[in-house]
Computed example of a mutant assay.
Amino acid sequence: MTETLISALANYGIALLFLTTFFSCLAVPVPSSLLMLAAGAFIATGDLDAYSSLLAALSGALCGDQIGYQIGAKGREPLARFMGKTQARARMMARSEAYLIQWGGLGVFLSRWLFSPLGPYINFASGAAGLPLWRFTLFAALGECIWVTLYLGLGYGFADNLAMASELAGDMLGLLAGLSMVFGFGVWLLRHNRKKNATAQLN
């Protein structure tokens, strides 16, 4: 499937980028990140226009985010039944709900590009939890800008070696994920100490 999509980029690049990022934001298993790397390589060779490719990929992601949010907001019960049909979906949905409760809008932002497997489920969870639409849209748009720019840029820069671009993207995101976990633990530790000191003062 992946090779077929990549080979179709030269002829259907703009529409294909839109559809791929759109469906990826609805938990459809399509290789959106890899396809954007390939699109970046096609931009480098002049087979695709940079501005059009960026706009198509970003528009698809933003539209997918909005549809996912609305599914969660207007179809809570059917969504819950659908997610509960398999353990994998139920587990991802539960993780996303807990993640959203802990991080709110920042969680939406990070799930676009850093913790991207959670992204579609965060869309559903945000709508179901009643996260304000303006807040969801703002953080989602900021995160999608980073995701699309990162992968198109790496594909452009490593046009002759997409495997290296993919590996580099994974390494970068892994490093950022580790730093985020350290930061998150530091924030939790700081809050815990503050609560502990406040309790001690009351006593």
Rank of each mutant, 00 (worst) to 15 (best):
L34I: 08
G40F: 08
S32H: 05
L179S: 09
K196P: 06
N197V: 10
A61C: 05
L162Y: 00
W188Y: 07
T45K: 13
D171T: 12
Y156K: 06
S126F: 11
S96D: 01
A128V: 00
F42G: 03
T21M: 06
G72Y: 01
M93N: 11
G64A: 13
L162H: 05
L131Q: 05
Q87F: 08
A38I: 06
V28Q: 11
S59K: 14
D160A: 14
D49K: 00
L176A: 13
A15C: 09
L154E: 02
A94P: 08
G60N: 07
A50T: 11
L79M: 15
Y121C: 07
T45F: 03
F82R: 09
R112V: 00
S111N: 02
L133F: 14
G104E: 05
L5D: 07
G46E: 04
V30E: 06
L142V: 03
A27I: 00
A15E: 11
R95D: 07
E77W: 07
A200G: 07
E167D: 12
E3L: 13
A15S: 15
R135I: 15
T86R: 09
Y121F: 15
L9W: 06
L9Q: 01
G104D: 14
I14N: 08
A141R: 03
A159H: 12
G107W: 01
G174S: 11
N197P: 00
